[in-house]
Amino acid sequence: TLFEALYDYEARTEDDLSFHKGEKFQILNSSEGDWWEVRSLTTGETGYIPSPYLAPV
């Protein structure tokens, strides 16, 4: 399942991933609570992002 960003987000740590509203992601790991490890389909980068900022496509 692909997810889309509902809002912009600016990374706060080196493990976070900055992204823009509308960017699409592949979920790599969603078992860590509200922070999911994802791969951006736009940039190819991986990192953690807050799951409340995402919605299924």
Rank of each mutant, 00 (worst) to 15 (best):
L54N: 04
L41Y: 06
A55S: 12
A5P: 01
G33L: 11
G33N: 11
A11Y: 04
I49N: 00
R39A: 06
G44V: 01
Y9R: 05
A11T: 05
V57K: 02
D15C: 14
E10I: 14
T46C: 07
S18K: 05
Y9T: 01
W36A: 01
L6H: 04
V38F: 01
L17W: 07
Y9A: 02
E37Y: 15
P50H: 15
R12L: 13
H20I: 12
K21A: 11
I49K: 00
T43E: 01
V38I: 02
S30R: 11
S40Y: 04
Y9L: 04
D8G: 06
E32Q: 14
S51K: 11
T1I: 14
S31F: 09
D8R: 04
S31W: 09
D16Q: 15
G44S: 05
A55I: 13
V57G: 05
F19S: 02
Y9P: 01
E32S: 14
L41K: 03
P56R: 03
F3Y: 15
L41P: 04
L17H: 03
P56E: 09
I49Y: 00
L28H: 02
D8L: 02
T42P: 01
A11K: 09
W35E: 05
G33D: 13
A11W: 03
G33A: 14
S40I: 06
Y53D: 03
P52V: 15
T43S: 11
I27W: 05
S18M: 04
E23N: 06
L41A: 06
R39G: 02
L2K: 04
E32M: 15
V57M: 09
R12Y: 09
L17G: 01
Y53C: 09
Y9I: 02
P52R: 15
F25D: 00
Q26H: 11
P50A: 09
V38G: 07
Y48V: 09
S31I: 11
I27G: 01
W36F: 05
A55H: 10
R12S: 13
P52F: 15
L17N: 02
D16M: 13
R39E: 07
E14A: 11
Y7L: 11
E4A: 07
Y48D: 01
Q26N: 06
D34Q: 10
A11L: 02
F3L: 06
E37L: 15
Y7P: 00
E10N: 10
K21R: 11
T1L: 13
Y48W: 15
A5G: 02
G33W: 09
L54F: 06
D34E: 13
Y9W: 09
V57T: 09
Y53H: 07
K21Q: 09
S31Q: 11
G47D: 00
V57Y: 08
Y7G: 07
L2R: 04
R39T: 10
A55Y: 10
K21I: 08
D16W: 09
K21H: 05
D34V: 10
T13M: 11
D8P: 05
S18P: 06
L17Y: 06
E14F: 09
L6M: 10
L17V: 07
I27R: 06
R39P: 01
V38L: 01
W35H: 09
P52Q: 15
V38E: 00
P56W: 06
H20F: 13
D16A: 15
R39L: 14
A5V: 03
S40T: 03
A55L: 08
R12C: 10
L6N: 04
S18V: 04
D16Y: 12
A55W: 10
I49A: 14
T46I: 14
G47V: 03
